[in-house]
């Protein structure tokens, strides 16, 4: 059975995604790390679906749809920010800082 190993791989990938979000300042790379985390969760859904029924796979389908919407809107925001700041470095995006 691959359930335990799959959940372990999922845990490692999720932690790498979190480390990436904390480590990087390039907003586009941060977005890619978020995609990495979503994929890690998808892996655990699919692994559990093998044992508990196909509904887990349907949830993965929804996660992918939401990830696609999130990527489209997020990247549009990146373009809008780049137009104002000429940079996507999150250090320089501090308009809301007091």
């Amino acid at each position: 059975m691959l359930l335990g190993p799959s959940l372990g791989v999922s845990a490692i990938l999720f932690s790498l995604g979190v480390a990436g979000v904390l480590l990087r300042r390039n907003a586009i790379v941060i977005f890619m790390c978020i995609e990495l985390m979503l994929n890690a969760v998808n892996l655990s859904f699919v692994a559990l679906a093998q044992q508990l029924g196909r509904e887990g796979q349907v949830i993965v389908f929804f996660v992918m749809a939401v990830a696609a919407a999130e990527a489209a809107v997020g990247l549009a925001i990146m373009i809008a920010i780049y137009r104002h700041k000429s940079s996507v470095n999150v250090k320089e995006i501090n308009l809301l800082r007091g």
Partner: peptide
């Protein structure tokens, strides 16, 4: 922090 998170999530392996 990442390593700590792996250690925390490692309990999943024994589910």
């Amino acid at each position: 922090v990442g390593a700590l998170l792996v250690v925390e999530l490692w309990v999943l392996v024994r589910i």
